[in-house]
Nucleic acid binder design. Structure first.
Length: 224
DNA sequence: CCCTGATCATGA
DNA sequence: TCATGATCAGGG
């Protein structure tokens, strides 16, 4: 098995590539690609995601779009614990805090990224060394009408609060399935946001995340 | 700084 | 014990 030369030409090919990774460990994939594997993820938190990107032929980078734009597919690894449940929330995208008052759900970055996601389960608790965590069968997911409604409801509420200058009052407790949390290198990073009475204030950058209960349901439905 | 890939560490 | 808030690495 070797690394692909470029992105897959079709969703079928993407799925085939993903299925061939199932059963292998992150250690297997790292060795085959001649990559040094970390002992833990205290520092290289995004390592497994980037390794899977390589093996599926995703273009590396920090583009605010889907991983496979030509296929309309977003790629996400999903850490799974020994109970078969997600062990972390899932980052979706950066949250706009300025000038988005008129953006609607169907034009949002969250909607765009979540309409078709290839989930790659990575099985192993936090105590399991990255090298020994294994790849599960991929899940190509498209949100149901119900799921899209849940996402839209949360997104609209959060965006309304942001537009009203209430960013500092939003916590990760808001949102049934989608939450807003800090997203930055550290607490010193600040960006502009709408403040009270339409003023401009500095605040920590935020990102949208999917709650574990939501990704758990995706797993349940996929293997039902 | 913006945004991607995420997981860590601590308080409740 | 577990979710929130904080943090790590890298390209642009």
């Amino acid at each position: 098995m070797q690394l692909p030369n470029g992105p897959p030409d079709s969703i079928e090919e993407l799925l085939l590539r993903a299925e061939q990774l199932a059963g292998l460990t992150l250690g297997d994939l790292a060795s085959l690609a001649n990559i040094v594997i970390p002992q833990n993820f205290k520092r290289e938190k995004g390592w497994s995601g980037q390794l899977i990107e390589m093996w599926l032929g995703a273009t590396a980078g920090s583009k605010p779009q889907q991983d496979f734009p030509e296929l309309g597919v977003e790629l996400k690894t999903l850490p799974i614990n020994h109970f078969g449940a997600p062990s972390e929330t899932t980052y979706v995208c950066y949250a706009p805090l300025m000038g988005q008052e008129q953006t609607r759900w169907l034009n949002s970055n969250v909607y765009n990224k979540l309409q078709q996601v290839l989930w790659i389960p990575v099985i192993g608790d936090r105590a399991v060394p990255p090298a020994d965590r294994s790849i599960g069968m991929p899940i190509l997911w498209r949100p149901t009408e119900t799921e899209n409604n849940q996402l839209r409801t949360d997104w609209e509420e959060l965006m309304e609060r942001i537009s009203l200058g209430e960013i500092e009052s939003i916590t990760a407790r808001h949102g049934e399935v989608l939450q807003l949390r800090p997203k930055a290198a550290d607490g010193s990073v600040l960006t502009d946001a709408i403040g009270q009475n339409g003023s401009i204030v500095k605040t920590r950058p935020r990102g949208f995340y999917l709650r574990k209960s939501f990704t758990q349901q995706i797993l349940n439905n996929a293997f039902a």
